[in-house]
Design a protein around this nucleic acid. Sequence first.
RNA 1: GCCGAAAUGGUGGAACAGGUAGACACAAGGGACUUAAAAUCCCUUGUCCGUAAGGACGUGCGGGUUCGAUUCCCGCUUUCGGCACCA
Length: 838
Amino acid sequence: MSNYPFDEIEKKWQAYWEEHKTFAVTEDPSVPKDKRKYVLDMFPYPSGAGLHVGHPEGYTATDIYCRFLRMNGYNVLHPMGFDSFGLPAENYAIKTGTHPRATTEKNIDNFRKQIKRLGFSYDWSREVSTHTEQYYRWTQWIFLQLYKRGLAYESETPINWCPNCLTGLSNEEVKEGKCERCGTHVTRKNIRQWILRITAYADRLLEDLGTLDWSDSIKAMQSNWIGKSEGASVLFKLENLEESLEVYTTRSDTLFGATYMVVSPEHPLVKKITTPEQRNAVEAYIGEAAHKSDLERTDLAKDKTGVFSGSYAINPVNGERIPVWIADYVLISYGTGAIMAVPAHDTRDWEFAKKFNLPIVEVLKSEVDVQQQAWTEDGIHVNSGFLDGLNKSDAIEAMNSFLESRQIGKRTVNYKLRDWIFSRQRYWGEPIPLVHCPSCGTVPVPEDQLPLTLPEVESYAPSGTGESPLVTIPEWVDTSCPVCGGKAKRETNTMPQWAGSCWYYLRYLDPDNDCELASKEAIEYWMPVDLYVGGAEHAVLHLLYARFWHKVLYDLGIVNTVEPFQRLVNQGMITSFAFQRADKTLVATDEVEEAAPDTFIEKATGERLERVIAKMSKSLKNVINPDEIIAEYGADAMRTYEMFMGPLQVSKPWATTGLSGVYRFLDRIWRLTEQNLSDAEPSEELLKTLHKTIKKVTKDTGNLDFNTAISQMMILVNELYKTDGLPRAIWEPFILLLAPYVPHLAEELWELAGHAPSVSTQPWPAYREELTIDDEIELVVQVNGKVRAKLNVRKGTDKEQLLDMSMAQERIQEWIAGKTIIKTIVVPDKLVNIVIKG
RNA sequence: GCCGAAAUGGUGGAACAGGUAGACACAAGGGACUUAAAAUCCCUUGUCCGUAAGGACGUGCGGGUUCGAUUCCCGCUUUCGGCACCA
């Protein structure tokens, strides 16, 4: 048995930090701006399942980084809190009648306890939870500012509706078009909703990405989501109708090839363009489309559907009469909800044209037969009147000028980004602080009356009308108009979970402020967030919404930066091993036996299984519980293992055997203390290893390359095991290097070495560059690029000498004997390559 | 289908301004200690041929550039993540 008493050590130091408020931070004005850092974790939703091993990954990374920064003289803000409004607590309430607040607060207590057990250096005095009245008061306040700026509006939009449960469903609750709970086919129901005009900020959200220190892939995802495109809108006259059909296209150059048009089933002109003969078919088709979820529309992509409206439009450039179709491959939410179809040069249009026998006309010289497949590359225009002979980009320019001069179209910018549906028909969320007055219209709740608190309800069950359970409480709904004092009704929609997480990073700055969401001084002192770490699943929505709110707050003069999160790092997912049968189905871990090393069989059948990597899931029984890991190996081992597994940014599989290796490393460190510290000079060799270690750990920790920093510390420990005695001159700097990684153990070692706590406030060790350089290097001698000899030479030996020494090698002589030397390459301090022939 | 990321020993991963592939760790094998086991310490360990010295092959696959490619270029395959058929 080992004698590394992690349990005792970890309890001792966690109590010490708590008692001494070691990590409480203040806005000390004497610290210059460039010595202040705000390091933020994505706060968790406190689920009933407790902490998952994925949470500590990012939290450990930021904790190591923060402790490293403090030791390097920075004033570091590192807070934690809870994103505590959310669906699971409400669903649990519907099932059991337990108040979501009770469930949530119990879960928060559990989460906090679990997080604390990992020894993170949070300033807990700044903890916030989004469901508290003191917090959501300011969420409501921000909503009112959005409303007053015209950035919130009402509109009828569809929700997923389960006709059996009589309730709206989130996308997550819809599985394969069916209600997750009862299996009923989900339909769409139009409902009055509050919508935020995020599209008004589309350009700024796109432009300002350029100023951020985020990975290119995340920036690309956000940029694609915003989806700015420059094209043209074109008006097509409709035969026998007053109205024109407006389409948006990025390929106005292909207008001569437009052989039909398509409008989406939800398009406002559908009724008008449908001729009496087609009415039945069109209505049936629209009915079908309304039944389909977005998912089904997507899945049916391979097989295009549609129906002819009976009407025709006139192609404005060649006067051709072209049919107008109705099809759900055109979305009402993008562009104008109508397109001109150019089957020769667009794959989707080509598929549709083939299915319904519509003409395909080539207008760009194609390298394929457009009757056989679409040609979507560039080419020289043909069959295109005044565009003939031009390439794509020139033709687009020419056509757009033509359209504008004739006033039948104009250059238009379009975004994929849609406005943000901001209301939920739920109980457990921030009430939207608006009042509907029959005479004054929609009136905001006066700011001095915030927070507008959630009333207690008897039943959390849905109202049955699609509205929130709040509609069932007349005492709450019936109110007086803040303007005229007459009878009025409260808004019963609540806000989505995103709302609270849009600005929590600001509340940490000044969590107890009763007058404003955070003081100007605190914002000025800390913002922007220097490093934000969290899972890639929030790459688009959360980050885009938070950026949007931040920009609105900037326009209001409340925050001092255009962007909230200067640097963003997404941690990879922690996956698990799973076992797969030959038919690719997975087997739960407890059904598997390891018959021989790396040979796995299914217990029930004896079938040989392949080990694969899969997400942790309850059904596969491969979920790792952090509490159990901490109990068995300690928090320091858990932290170190999660960082040692691989690079922070990539996903990696959990292997408890790997954890035991890290545990062994910590145990080896502990057992070094069995020797007395010696004040003797350490050997030159050991000193060099130490300085190389300081250099590498310093560089790697700053770059969040924790896995390689840990390897280097392992190398130093291995060296110490080969040395007699434990020189203080090595040991003490090493404890300091360890401190961010294994904070509990490091505190204990620091105390054992005769120092007063806390090691976390000690300065980071410095290295001497000359001690990190070897004066003898191993020179590689290659013949035709293959290593044939190695020799030790002094660093800095000149090229000619290196070549002479290489040639003198017996092995090299053997290889080049009788051959012609064509060329020699000498890379000083690295290698010699002799190129021969014959 | 589109977008993004990736592919290196039995396993997790190192090394990329082009220069010794496999650091560190796990697993496996051998040895020491022990009455024994566990724990611990030491050694071996990419594959193949060879007693050895040594040699051949080797970073998903096929080409290319180069004295030299895990690293750069072209074309594929597979896996993972995201998605709103985005005109």
